[in-house]
Amino acid sequence: MIKIFLDSIKLTLVLAIITGLIYPLVITGLANIMFDDKANGSLLYDQNHKVIGSKLIGQAFTSNKYFQGRPSRAGNGYDALLSGGSNLGSTSQKLIEGNKDFDGIKQLAAKYRLVNKIDFTTKIPVEAVTASASGLDPDISYENAMLQAPRIASVRHLSQNKVTDLIELNVQKRELGFIGEPRINVLILNLDLDKLP
């Protein structure tokens, strides 16, 4: 029995070094040689070479001149240190009707209508009033972007066509034509918007 424990200790140490140290460090080395940008977070920089975000991680947009992402329950919204979602079930009153500290579907829909000046007869796509699992979802749907387009055009004094053209350009298609969902990366769309003359 003692021999079994001694063998266990030795094998544990050997396998721990192989799988817990050598393997991850070798992958880190290879990844940084082969895919330097991606291994380090797919970062985006402004003209002064300062980091303004990661292509993959959603950001909070509160100004009217920017397209807004989905509601986020990560911290106070898009807090990348507190990734996570609402964890509320389908029959949760808090999720549907909200309370004084928490915006439910009811308040989120009302705010979305108010900001974008949409009346009650227009339906809002479900993804625009629900929070993602990570709270860091970088994408919105085409329908959601189109509903925000008139607001963007009027705040930025652009023609609506120009904005909708930009949306069309930014639609990311399904992988290999059928895997995943079509979507629009909000940060990249907003960066493109800032570049418009």
Partner: peptide, 19 residues
Amino acid sequence: YNINYATNQLGDSGGNMEG
């Protein structure tokens, strides 16, 4: 709240998108 979650209109971005 007049939310559109029909998958025959929105495809697979409709339905229960919470979480």
